[in-house]
Design a protein around this nucleic acid. Structure first.
Lengths: 150, 150
DNA sequence: TACAAATAATTAGTGTGACAAATATATGAA
DNA sequence: TTCATATATTTGTCACACTAATTATTTGTA
């Protein structure tokens, strides 16, 4: 195999990642979910982990701080979450979902799982494991931090 | 496997695609390549296909028209390419590299191939084929168009 | 020929991603 | 205690992605 062909992984990876996001976002829109794909990722993680700081949340969702600050701004504006001052550290906040945010997560979770499955038609569970292994290897080759399996 | 775990492919895919782009961009920057990763993709495709219209180029690189318009604006400003009016259709342009653009492609190509290889450490050629197959299957499951193999 | 529909490219608006710098607060060592 | 250093978050800037709307031109058809 030539190096030229080999280097195409980056193109295919980028193209597929964009397609996955684009497909999900279109479904989110036609379903009037009122959140973007990235906003959903934040809501979902908040529903599973309470009173996180922004730094902790940033590590969970692998977004940098400025990006997360802006996503949180939007979610607060929509009323799905709040920043509560941390009584032990005045630099930081404790993040939590509002009732409206909890309801949103409950309502969307099953619909989003269904949207996500579409990508996996014609692929097996073995493919899934292989895919995860390769993605994680690439991620770590480029300096990513190991993440524990669940 | 639960659906929950299953749906994580979208997260891993997005995370890895971003890491790959970020790693490359950092190398581009420290090497003073004077182009972004996406600008390189456009230059590279132009060097391999002459006198494309923007619509044709957009299909090749899988970018939408507004994004491509702006990337081309930047590359023209840098003097690497030009828009030539199409004599047969006054709506469109024929895109081509300048001499400076041709030189840029020649100079960067080998360096970029080297950067791209870093991601593939600890992975085999079989892994590469599997990876390509899975990415393309996902891409097509979500409505992507078949692309011919080279 | 005339005109509706299609096409090529651009513009505008919003969201996200990366990086650098700024602000505010906390911590640790002299 | 004090001051340098570290940490949490925000702000600013540029680039890219997606949608919708706009402009200019071409094409198909009556």
């Amino acid at each position: 195999m030539t190096h030229e062909q080999f280097a195409k992984y980056s193109f295919l990876l980028d193209r597929t990642a964009r397609k996955v996001k684009q497909y999900a976002q279109q479904q989110f829109k036609s379903g009037e979910f009122d959140v973007t794909v990235d906003q959903w990722l934040v809501l979902k993680n908040l529903s599973e982990n309470h009173l996180l700081s922004q730094t902790q949340l940033a590590q969970l969702v692998f977004k940098d701080h400025p990006t997360l600050t802006r996503i949180i701004d939007l979610l607060c504006k929509k009323g799905y979450m709040e920043r509560i001052p941390n009584p032990n550290d005045r630099r930081s906040f404790q993040l939590h979902l509002t009732t409206s945010g909890e309801e949103k997560v409950r309502a969307l979770r099953p619909q989003i799982l269904e949207i996500r499955e579409k990508a996996w038609e014609n692929l097996s569970e073995t493919d899934f494991e292989e895919f995860k292994r390769i993605l994680n290897t690439i991620y770590m080759n480029l300096g990513g931090q190991e993440t524990e399996e669940e």
